[in-house]
Design a protein around this nucleic acid. Structure first.
Lengths: 336, 336
DNA sequence: TTGAAAGCGCTAACAA
DNA sequence: TTGTTAGCGCTTTCAA
């Protein structure tokens, strides 16, 4: 209820002694304005401290320079390195492109206000498939981050988590490990499933099987990593290497090992996934799989914007390959 | 550029056989509509899958059901428990109040698009004083979170960090400690300054002075906490207790102590600040000072919205008191 | 190079 | 209880 009448385009026009059309031209950098008028208008804008009304512009233009960003609101999401990187990337891109960022944290069931944005970025697909379908049906371009979507014709940019899981297993096998365990991520998420799938595939290639005891289900939380690690250590024949499906979890694995006096990498190799800078500052720096979350989020916004402006055509689909980052937490096994 | 002509209020009116005004009334729950027309309009809305255009509504109403949320964009902000709690709180409140959340991560120098929001929440004041002044001058209600602002007539909701710092020192003194060190937060921030101020005040009360060596400057990063802890431990006469100005930092202190085989709380007491759940899962759970960040952010949005709707008058100013949470990382000193 | 005028999709007096 | 109509603040033809 901004009561006090804001200064409008008409005030500027009056002061500059031109029509509102000319003022509009100056605002929008339309070149056909005489230097003389240009200067007068600029003076007036500065003097009156005029700012165009974004809503009126959007209405008149029929397009929307805001993009929506929808994140699943499951508990703990904000404590993850993952979510925070995405927010940073999206935020940065919007800043650069001068787009308004309309943020939605949602459980996937409430309605999105699609009319206030030109396009929507969805971080992951969990419970919110319906929202994506509704937005698409309403003609709003959507872009899904961090999910490879094969059963819907939609724009996405994802990470090849199968390749990532495979890379982790491969590295450990190359080092000579034979008893390699995985602590999975949340298997409700595609990333959790795919990392396991890639890991299992590589293990099967070499050893023919991945035993149940070597496959502990986690959910990306530190707590689940602790429980899984303890189970692994209590095994009659514990693993010589552990692949934790996120750096956060790997850090907890490291903590448990440390508490029990098990040396890394001498007595146990640990590999993570994410390349979270937190994992650099412990006693041993963590070997991990790097995934470019920030860049992915940034590119998602840039491409979505191009699509909204019809400078790019749909569907835009891209898969990024995560890469091994060797640091200090893995070595050849001392025992077999 | 949502090309395809969306279904508008006129289409609904036509189909329902009423005027657009009546449709508008239904949308806005104006009670003076006959049940008969009400039903017809509702049918038409459902059939056409009509959704009102948020921009047009805002323009016509002259008010804005979106609020802005401005966060300082300094590096690392998103890795802090602090920032994430605020985002969660603000996000949740907007969800509840059905407000659009326009998110800005800013260095404090670029301009804010004030015209697209009804009010703005500023998380902290760092470099962005100018933005707050500009928005206020433009008549946009502002609410500052986590800062007690005495030199500006502005709405704020803050935390009494002086009291928090004092409480931490007091608890340690009560336990019998005499050599108590502080690792400060970023002293550019008010919270960093105030926690130090409160801590120092209480120390001075009991001991008359706080030596330089017992006061290590940090910046809320884990790295700075590590460096500070190392300095403290190398002292000829190290402290028996350490107050870290954030839980994140306290966790790093714990990590360093653990690496050196120093037992907590037997050989060293450690107290943090925040009440970050991460600090529950280590070997010792952290004694800390709880600050209600989530609630603060939520209330900020709620009050700001009330102000925008002129249901509450300005300035709204409130200070929350942080509280001691006793867990396992502090005990009476064994040595003096 | 400029301006008049017709909308953009909706709300809110006002009159009926 | 309903509909007519004048805006909200801007962009964009179109004609000059």
């Amino acid at each position: 209820m901004n009561k006090k009448r804001r200064v409008g385009i008409e005030d500027v026009a009056k002061r500059a002694g031109v029509s509102i059309t000319t003022v509009s031209r100056v605002i929008n950098h339309v070149p056909t304005v005489s230097p003389r008028n240009q200067a007068k208008v600029e003076e007036a804008i500065a003097a009156l401290n005029y700012e165009p009304d974004a809503n009126a512009q959007r209405l008149a233009r029929g397009l929307n320079n805001a993009i929506g960003f929808v994140m699943p609101g499951y508990p703990g999401i904000f404590y993850s390195f993952y979510a925070v990187e995405l927010i940073r990337g999206v935020g940065h891109a919007c800043e650069t492109l001068r787009l308004d960022l309309v943020f939605h944290i949602t459980n996937g069931f409430n309605d999105l206000n699609t009319s206030s944005v030109g396009g929507i970025v969805f971080a992951d697909i969990i419970e919110n498939r319906r929202q994506i379908e509704a937005a698409s049906a309403a003609g709003i371009p959507c872009m899904v981050i961090n999910n490879i979507v094969s059963d819907m014709m939609i724009n996405y940019i994802g990470i090849d988590n199968v390749a990532g899981g495979r890379t982790a297993a491969d590295y450990l096998i190359q080092l000579g490990h034979k008893r390699i365990a995985i602590i999975t991520g949340n298997l409700q998420t595609q990333s959790g499933q795919h990392r396991l799938e890639g890991f299992r595939g590589r293990i099967l290639d070499s050893f023919g099987e991945l035993s149940d005891e070597m496959c502990q289900e986690g959910d990306y939380s530190r707590r689940s990593a602790r429980i899984a690690t303890e189970k692994l250590l209590e095994l009659p024949n514990p693993p010589t290497a552990i692949f934790a499906s996120s750096d956060d979890m790997a850090l907890e694995v490291l903590a448990v090992l440390n508490e029990r006096g098990i040396k890394v990498p001498d007595d146990m190799s640990v590999i993570g996934f994410d390349d979270n800078p937190d994992s650099l500052y412990g006693q041993v720096s963590l070997t991990t799989i790097h995934q470019p979350l920030f860049q992915m989020a940034e590119e998602a916004v840039r491409m979505l914007n191009a699509i909204v402006l019809q400078k790019e055509k749909q569907p835009f689909q891209k898969v990024l390959i995560p890469e091994l980052v060797v640091r200090d937490s893995c070595a050849a096994p001392k025992r077999i």
